[in-house]
Design a protein around this nucleic acid. Structure first.
Lengths: 222, 222
DNA sequence: CCGGGGCTCCCCCGTTCGGGGGAAGAAAAA
DNA sequence: TTTTTCTTCCCCCGAACGGGGGAGCCCCGG
């Protein structure tokens, strides 16, 4: 039986290299490629022909791990995606599974779980980290992430909200009237079933719509 | 010359195991121990007698990597601490260096940088990730993180803010009047030189005062 | 063709925020 | 000791916010 062709997608190159070293210490696993972004992974995917793609959810740049998972599955249905992430947030895990991931392992899990997930994925078996499988399934049952219900414009406004801007500032940034922004904010809160913009910001961050690192603090010296 | 005695402190056990595999592939490095928390590392430190402690900043539990670094240095001055973290936020890096770390490497750096930092630390040399060394130095010059200027009570309020609560809700949670909360919020914004509570929330998250994972979304159907 | 959704803008209204001021007690620092 | 800081609470006021309504425009799908 041939070795499991594995690809690593993680923007943390130190971690990526370490994972490669770890996985290759097992004779049944072969690391045939690695990428630091979803874009890079997709470019090279057809050249690698992997059985398993180990995907980090949290990545900088335009494409996050969820979107990357979706496209990997579309481009190469044979390749199974195992999500390996530090994320403890159920919402994003659920989104990843919806996007076509077959396995999910947290970085703080026992390494044996990770190995099992990779080997399982190669056989088409789903291995979910037991630490969160329960709550994730609950999430799946009770409906998907509400962000996806947001229109593009509403996501724009939500991103602006996450920068701590007022309606007026958002109006200027997006070149619309303050009234329009009010409408969007109202619709966002309504769709997300929240009541304050502060909650919307936390929600945006949890969903990965914006990254904390992307936010330059305004209005302070420094 | 004997091998560099190294200890890994990272709550991500998958990553920790992978790093061990990676480091041990080099003949001059020996991994003599590993811990998933600052507490565990300190307990076993004197048994390990490491030359280098590789420390992740972001860890759950009572002690974070910064406090752990401080105590490692106090308990075993021979052991040099290299911070290895996904954190892209300067503030916490500066805090870690203040706490006595000699090296700092981001997880998305070139693995070579990490190796250099470990080997340098063993010789007492400081290796700072060039990707951020500049901005970190600026931070050091312009003074420490503003959070430290906040009183305990103000941090309590800031944590509440991060949950998207209104002044009234915070008042109930902390068992004080709404007026008191208003005072605290005002002082927080003033001290942090911000103008909206939403910005304060982002600030709290960036500083690690609260973790995104700690925040249970309220006010939505779930 | 007509309906629905998205984007834009406007009105009104009550609530929440943020900033200004002051004040009292307790605890810690000078 | 005096002084400062922290914590608590109160006042007033203007600005910002959230919810409700309506309206016109465009585009896509039935």
């Amino acid at each position: 039986m041939s070795r499991i062709r594995t690809v690593l997608v993680d923007d943390h190159r130190v971690v990526q290299t370490a994972l490669r070293s770890y996985l290759e210490s097992f004779p049944d696993i072969e690391v045939v490629g690695a990428a630091v972004s979803g874009e890079e992974a997709l470019e090279k995917l057809e050249g690698w022909l992997p059985d398993v793609v180990v995907m980090d959810l949290r990545m900088p740049g335009g494409m996050d791990g969820i979107e990357a998972t979706r496209r990997v599955r579309a481009l190469s249905p044979h390749s199974q995606v195992v999500v390996l992430t530090a994320d403890t947030d159920d919402a994003r895990v659920v989104a990843a599974l919806r996007a076509g991931a077959i396995g999910y392992v947290r970085k703080d899990s026992d390494p044996e779980v990770f190995l099992t997930a990779v080997r399982g994925a190669a056989r088409g078996q789903s291995v979910l980290d037991p630490a969160v499988a329960g709550s994730v399934l609950q999430d799946l049952l009770r409906g998907g992430p509400l962000v996806e219900e947001l229109s593009e414009r509403e996501k724009d406004v939500l991103r602006q909200l996450a920068h701590g801007r007022t309606n007026r500032e958002i109006a200027q940034a997006l070149h619309v009237s303050e009234e329009t922004v009010k409408t969007h904010v109202g619709n966002i809160l309504s769709k997300l079933q929240l009541s304050h913009r502060t909650q919307a910001v936390v929600y945006a961050l949890k969903q990965g719509l914006v990254s904390l690192e992307d936010i330059e603090m305004e209005g302070r010296g420094g």
